[in-house]
């Protein structure tokens, strides 16, 4: 069975436009127009969502988050790529080559 990640640190990612996003008590919630689902991104997920409003490499996202949060690079890289893979699975982001 393959354990290959869907995204890697050198990938560029960007939001898929057209979703309705709102702040709710410091957390970001979003309605996907495409699939009609509601999502809660949480606080840090909301920060990541703002960072990917324009195309950006994932390792740049990690560096920016490390400026604001108490976290090791290894932990941040692992958890951010996992989170972005979830977003990709739901078609909420696009990777370089898709745009």
């Amino acid at each position: 069975m393959s354990t290959k990640k869907m995204v890697s640190l050198k990938d560029k990612v960007q939001q898929v436009k057209g979703n309705l996003v709102s702040d709710m008590g410091g957390e970001k919630v979003m309605l996907s127009i495409e699939n009609g689902k509601y999502y809660n991104l949480g606080e840090i997920g909301g920060d990541i969502w703002e960072l990917i409003s324009e195309p950006i490499e994932i390792d740049q996202i990690v560096s920016k988050l490390m400026d604001h949060y108490e976290v090791t690079r290894e932990e941040c890289e692992t958890e951010v790529t996992s989170f972005l893979a979830q977003l990709k699975k739901e078609n909420l982001i696009q990777l370089k080559g898709d745009f």
Binding site: K37, Y38, Y39, N40, G42, I44, I48, H68, Y69, E70
Partner: peptide
């Protein structure tokens, strides 16, 4: 001062629509 890190997660919310 840096903020406390928590693993980012994507939560899918189940919204029930009531037909009236």
């Amino acid at each position: 001062m840096k903020k406390h890190w928590q693993k980012p997660t994507l939560e899918v919310l189940e919204i029930t629509m009531t037909m009236a």
